[in-house]
Design a protein around this nucleic acid. Structure first.
Lengths: 346, 346
DNA sequence: GAGAGTACCGTAAGCGCTTACGAAACTATA
DNA sequence: TATAGTTTCGTAAGCGCTTACGGTACTCTC
């Protein structure tokens, strides 16, 4: 005899009562409950997950799907680690497990996701690296699986998302560069179909317009999320008839390659080319000159995501009366010297 | 009616036969099997994971526990992403799922792990960031859960592990530095209880001895895995009566802070201080001068781990007759300019 | 053509939990 | 004291699968 039956036998009571005691149901004597909990702890008993899921029809675990593609999503372990921690901090309060599901590089993301959905492995999903057209969203909506995306998409309708405030970042950065006298401001945008690339570019256009600057398509550079991409941009940029005097990077990591190439050419960031990175990462902050960029609390980002998800999970929804969440997390400017503004640094 | 019963009804056969057909059992007619598979695909049927796990007593999923602690395990590299991909490539061949389990910063790793083990969530485990004394290993051994650790430990006995060949790296690096004329060679070692710190230091001592160099405890610096740690080491190092002329870093990321500080002091890596990093990362390869370091295939590392695990899982063990695997993955030297050896770079 | 063997499939008993239902023992009320 | 309400717990029916077992129909063999 094993499992809950063993516990019940040990205590001389029925399995039903043990189960009720363990699950905090009402109709069980305080003294009985105490004994059950004590025995469970003593014997190291924990209810079998499969049996429980089968009986309740709920797995009490949420998935967080990430991509393993090194060109785009990776190099950002750090990013996700922070977010995971934030998500967990909320889920843990309700005894929910977080299962990170890494989609292999050679597998279709939709197929991969479907496997877990169809087999009922998770109660809710968190999606990262949302594409502009993302079939995963349609999949989850038609399967009626509660979900939240980290990032926006054109697919689906009325779903919850949490995203970085790209619009705010771009507006602040461009305002800053303009106020420093720059008129020709380049940007890098993501290579591939991620939706924030479009958002980023649109915000860029809006900012230019706001300042009465004309848009030059030649000042928009597609880059992958790696150092080499930044290295390459420098040559492209300097090869223009009228090179930009400033650049805003969607991927801060590209600053590393950019710095390298500038150094090789005897040029200095902040003096010969104003550079503003995107997200605050220790690495780019330790470059010389330090990259001006934007910071965001990954933990809070994770918390927001988890809360948005719980708002859709029936057993918790009443405690998180948020409805459909569509939240842009604000980022805060972190001054460096790469944009030519010399300020005291801490 | 739903699930397998629905499928059975649709086809006018029993659930038993459907199950057998789906699971590739022998006694089912070819034509029947074809129909079942076709219908399953058409209706998007996939067996409920919980029910299957309950009936079979096996979950067909393996866990990969990582730490969220940003000081040590994280850092902005894609170490784990690469490993996950390698692990998946093997597991996928057998229809096994990989569940990444991120232990929150504020939770005891053993407690966290036990939750999943006791509830029967996984069939096998992969442990990262093994400590010198790691109770998780004892836990898994006494629970009889097949597992592999990414890294070695003093705990447990006769278990499978896959690790980087720290010994080889240290030997190669020290040999190289000595041959370049260095006599006072410093090292950084990990802060905290991770076991590879001890291994690294022992290899360092052995290499010094091999070259007839005396050991100076003052040349061993504990660092966390971040840029700032490297920044700080520079001052400590230069403050010595007899500063080292070369340094070998356990965490390549510390090179970034180190470079920064050296630059501030008007010193140049490779000329004023020979620097050899540990693992090859794009970021440090893009520093100027490029950091000499060591490369390893993360994918192959993941493959080795997965194979070592399958060798312990009953249904697959016969296809992976490896027994207890204890494997050090070799790393290959990647020449940069940070150690003073000027070579053509690709 | 009877017996043995084989291929295929239905039946039903679990796997370890949860939970609706009802019974028993009390307590409160009239 | 009879009735109704409450607290507590046992009973047993599932949850959706897998699989041992046995039965049927067919094929071979001598």
């Amino acid at each position: 005899m094993r499992g809950i039956a063993r516990l019940a036998q040990e205590l001389g009571i029925s399995t039903g009562t043990v189960s009720r005691a363990l699950n905090g149901k009402r109709d069980v004597n305080d003294e009985t409950r105490r004994k059950v909990l004590e025995a469970a702890r003593r014997l190291g008993y924990a209810p079998n997950q499969a049996a429980r899921a089968l009986a309740q029809g709920t797995t009490r675990s949420v998935g967080f799907m990430i991509e393993l593609d090194q060109e785009t999503a990776a190099s950002s372990d750090y990013f996700f680690m922070g977010v995971f921690d934030g998500v967990q901090s909320v889920l843990a309060q309700h005894g929910l497990d977080l299962l990170v599901l890494p989609c292999p590089t050679n597998q279709d993301r939709c197929t991969y996701l479907e496997r877990f959905v169809a087999r009922g492995v998770i109660d809710g999903m968190i999606l990262a690296s949302t594409q502009r057209v993302d079939k995963r969203i349609d999949l989850l909506q038609s399967a009626q699986i509660p979900f939240v995306t980290l990032g926006r998409s054109k697919s689906g309708h009325d779903y919850s998302w949490v995203d970085l405030d790209f619009e705010g970042v771009v507006a602040t950065a461009i305002d800053r560069l303009v106020s420093l006298g720059h008129r020709r401001i380049a940007v890098t945008v993501p290579y591939g179909g991620v939706n924030f690339g479009v958002i980023f570019k649109e915000a860029y256009l809006a900012a230019l317009k706001r300042h009465g600057l004309s848009f030059d398509p030649g000042l928009v550079f597609e880059t992958k999320r790696n150092e080499l991409a930044g290295y390459g941009v420098v040559d492209e940029l300097l090869g223009l008839d009228e090179p930009p005097t400033a650049i805003l990077l969607i991927y801060e990591v590209t600053a590393i390659g950019m710095y390298r190439r500038l150094a090789e050419l005897g040029l200095t960031p902040g003096r010969d080319l104003a550079v503003i990175g995107f997200r605050d990462e220790p690495t780019v902050r330790f470059l010389a000159p330090a990259v001006t960029c934007f910071s965001v609390s990954l933990h809070e980002l994770g918390v927001s995501i988890a809360e948005a998800l719980l708002a859709q999970l029936p057993p918790y929804a009443d405690r998180y009366p948020l409805g459909i969440v569509q939240k842009r997390c604000p980022l805060e400017l972190v001054s460096g010297e790469s944009d030519g503004v010399m300020e005291a640094r801490t």
